[in-house]
Amino acid sequence: MLIAHIPGALLGLLIGNIIDRNLAIKSWADLRTRLPVRAQPQLNAEQVLFMLLGHLAKSTGRVSAAHIQSARAEMQRLQLSAAAQKRAIAAFTQGKDCALTDLRSALRSHYAADKAEQLLTAGWRIAYAQGLATAKQRRILQRCADWLNYPAASFSRLEAQLMPTRLRPNSAGNELEAALQLLGVTRSTSLAQVKQAYRRKVSVHHPDKLMGAGAPPAQLRAATEKTRALHQAYALVRKHLQG
């Protein structure tokens, strides 16, 4: 009853003094650090995946339309329900601003052992969404692979396997560019001009011209290889222009 008659302000000062003296709390920020932390909701496997995809996309500096399209394609592959898609979109957005290390324990919980490749496959797809993956994206995926104990050889295989055909060193598009460069022509050069350029170069590099001059064997072999390369380049360019 005595306490009930103490004015509220005075009671507050009294309680505050007791707390401050016993807990040594000097500020509101100090008090907040001593309050129990509310447990964060557990992320499911799909949310972890899309957080990583968001992190990979933002690592290029800005999330592009190609990144978003790749993420939506991943939702379709997983056959996510409408509710699950909303959660995936929220996770993708959250992943843009999170640190990769914040995902480490969640990655290990949901993608250990046989599921690691599923995660890395989706990661490489979004890394290749705009073209070649950046060095930063590769480092991010490499760290994930290390955390999940994914073999280095399998990681390299997956990287090469998922690279779009147009970006591969031996793709038809790159072979054509190399052939054009070897002949000294362009895609807009006419077939007659290409043939003329081919004959001119062969006449310069043909090994028959060197044999009479007493050229050493190494030079003859080099000329033979050069002539063979010119033959192949001309055949490829001619096929492209005629097709």
Rank of each mutant, 00 (worst) to 15 (best):
Q142K: 08
K26T: 14
N22I: 13
I89C: 03
D30E: 12
A172C: 04
H205S: 12
L180F: 06
L182R: 14
I6C: 02
G212L: 15
D20G: 10
L148C: 07
H5M: 06
M51I: 10
S81Q: 04
G8C: 08
Y234F: 13
N44L: 03
L236H: 05
H5K: 10
S156T: 09
A45Q: 09
R38V: 11
K86E: 14
L31R: 07
T101I: 14
L210P: 01
Q76V: 15
I3W: 15
S203V: 09
L56H: 05
R168M: 04
A4Q: 09
Q196D: 05
H240Q: 06
A45N: 09
Y234R: 01
D114C: 00
A39S: 07
A82K: 11
L191A: 11
L167E: 04
G8T: 12
L11W: 04
H110A: 02
A29W: 11
A71W: 11
R104L: 06
R221S: 09
I25C: 13
A192Y: 11
Q232I: 00
L236W: 03
M163N: 00
L31T: 11
L107Q: 06
R38E: 14
Q219F: 09
L23H: 10
Q161H: 02
R143K: 10
Y234C: 10
R125F: 13
Q181S: 15
A99T: 14
R34W: 03
L10T: 09
Y198F: 14
L107R: 01
A73E: 15
D208Y: 06
Q79S: 10
L53R: 02
A83G: 06
I126V: 05
L167N: 00
V237Q: 02
R238H: 03
G12I: 04
